[in-house]
């Protein structure tokens, strides 16, 4: 019983982290119809900036997080206005090729600047074991889970209950109609990509304090994020959260009761089943499209 409880706790914590690292991907797809293959690399950039600020500059963790969000948000806005803008409405392929190009550029630029050594973001939370009955957790994991929850709630409120959020949703539903009622759709696209980028790099900086971060980490992050969003439904916010938790718990139980060696396969097995049974994922957002 204790064994199962510990596995569930591990799975839920990991699931939250998976959800967080997939949010930016699902948001950009849901609100822009862009499949962002540079997602994992934006995560990596966030982690490395977080490391540089906390370790090299000596900045406070939360200040570093804020700087990461603002800096990468601004960069995301510019990426959209300067690059994605040029391939908008030219089919999915050009967007995919563009973001793959961005991902290669980011990885290799990071390799040139910081090299290949893994780094860690310094956080103020303790890594000592914390015993909750039979279950072991750490203060840092619990704190990051709490910060994840706050971030998710904030983004949810932003999209559902602010003028900017309404404009984002209007733009993806029908860009022409949105611009007829006075929404500057070009800027809204920029803001949406900025939000997705900021979320990806915030996840990188937060999780960089639990795990490590390095220039070549992007591919793995993207892979898991794609599993999560396909499970939950591409573009669905609630889907990403549920998809993340399902993946986390499934991996923990599989690893605990069978073998940890093939744990990465379980996510893809789930994806295959999901595509056969519910091709649009647990929370389909198909109805939202015009």
């Amino acid at each position: 019983m204790d064994f199962l409880l510990q596995l569930l706790a591990n799975g839920l914590v990991n699931g939250t982290f998976y959800a967080l690292s997939a949010l930016g991907l699902t948001l950009i797809f849901g609100l822009m119809r862009v499949v962002n293959f540079a997602h994992g690399e934006l995560y990596m950039v966030g982690g490395l900036i977080g490391w540089a600020l906390t370790e090299l500059v000596g900045a406070n963790f939360f200040l570093a997080l804020l700087i990461v969000v603002i800096a990468t948000g601004a960069a995301g806005y510019l990426i959209d206005r300067w690059l994605i803008e040029r391939v908008r409405n030219q089919g999915a392929e050009s967007g995919i090729l563009l973001t793959i190009g961005i991902s290669i550029f980011l990885t290799n630029t990071a390799l040139l600047i910081v090299g290949t050594v893994p780094h860690k973001v310094l956080s103020p939370f303790a890594n000592k074991p914390l015993f909750l009955g039979p279950v072991v957790l750490t203060q840092s994991r619990l704190s990051i889970v709490a910060i994840c929850a706050v971030l998710m709630l904030a983004v949810h409120l932003l999209i559902k209950h602010t003028t900017l959020g309404r404009a984002m949703r209007a733009t993806v539903q029908d860009a022409m109609a949105a611009s007829l009622v006075g929404i500057r759709t070009e800027r809204i696209h920029g803001f949406t990509f900025a939000l997705g980028t900021a979320l990806a790099s915030a996840a990188g900086a937060l999780l960089g304090s639990i795990y490590v971060t390095q220039p070549t980490i992007g591919g793995l992050v993207s892979l898991k994020a794609f599993v999560v969003v396909i499970l939950g439904g591409l573009g669905s916010f609630a889907g990403a959260i549920i998809g993340g938790l399902v993946l986390g718990v499934a991996e923990a139980l599989w690893g605990g009761y069978f073998a940890t060696g093939y744990v990465d396969a379980i996510g893809f097995a789930l994806v295959i089943v999901m595509l056969l049974v519910r091709p649009y994922g647990l929370f389909s957002v198909k109805s939202e499209r015009a």
Partner: peptide, 19 residues
């Protein structure tokens, strides 16, 4: 037990190791 290159979370493995 084995784990994949680039594994970020060993808690499941550690839970097994503990028991």
């Amino acid at each position: 037990e084995y784990f994949e290159h680039g594994t970020t979370d060993f808690y499941t493995l550690l839970t097994k190791l503990k028991s």
